[in-house]
């Protein structure tokens, strides 16, 4: 059996509230294998985004630990592998408004220390893969929501991370565009062999993952 690219054990997280500590994660464990897709569903406020941020190293758990198998780094804490060990796709795309599509994608590679020429070559290739080869010089304001999310997908994958974490990637898109983006995302990560952890409200999209979970009451359980 291959080694998991993302491994979480016994994660707990609580937030302070006027009524006392609010536990959003209570001993969550998860292992994601290379190339597999995992979906996590849950109601609003169930802690899905918090779990994803802890898995990606954007937040720390109160207890428990997460390791990512990052290329060239081995098994490390996700914060040490930001940008290289995990890629993020956010609900609101989160593109830099002053940069073109190409520059947005290349930015992630530049932050990871890739040269300008190599970063641009990778960005061109990935934008071609997501169907935006003709729109590389457009600013985000000139792109549709679906196109912005495709740019965000290319940006998340430009450093060839072993895991892609997607937080409601279709939440801001209409039904048809959401379908296109989801199909594209699954196709691209499949072709690159990237594991996918998908947080979504949509039962339909969640069903497309190879393993499915539900987060409820701070506990992650198979759907």
């Amino acid at each position: 059996m291959p080694e998991p690219v993302l491994s979480a054990r016994g994660l707990t997280k609580a937030f302070a509230s006027p009524a006392g500590p609010l536990a959003v994660l209570q001993g969550v464990s998860l292992a994601v294998l290379p190339g597999e897709s995992v979906s996590i569903r849950g109601s609003s406020g169930s802690g899905k985004t918090t779990l994803l941020q802890i898995l990606g190293g954007l937040d720390l758990p109160d207890s428990g630990e997460v390791t990512v198998l990052a290329p060239g780094l081995g098994a490390v804490r996700p914060r040490a592998a930001l940008g290289r060990g995990v890629g993020f796709v956010f609900q609101n795309y989160q593109l830099m408004p002053e940069l073109t599509a190409l520059e947005n994608v290349a930015l992630a590679a530049r932050i990871a220390g890739v040269s300008v020429a190599e970063a641009q070559a990778r960005a061109h290739e990935l934008l071609g893969q997501v169907g935006l080869a003709a729109r590389t010089d457009h600013l985000p304001a000139k792109l549709s929501g679906g196109e912005c999310q495709r740019v965000a997908l290319a940006r998340a994958l430009v450093n060839r991370p072993p895991v892609l974490l997607a937080d409601e990637p279709t939440g801001n898109l209409d039904e048809r565009t959401a379908e296109e983006v989801m199909a594209l995302m699954l196709g691209v990560v499949g072709s690159l062999g990237t594991a996918l952890v998908l947080v979504t409200h949509s039962r339909e999209f969640a069903e497309r993952a190879s393993r499915r979970f539900v987060l409820s009451g701070g506990v992650l359980s198979p759907a």
Binding site: G56, L58, L82, G83, R84, F88, F90, N92, Q94, M96, L107, A108, I111, A112, R155, N159
Partner: peptide, 12 residues
Amino acid sequence: TREVGVLAALGA
């Protein structure tokens, strides 16, 4: 602020 978070997520 959100862009700062995104840049951190990208490894900045």
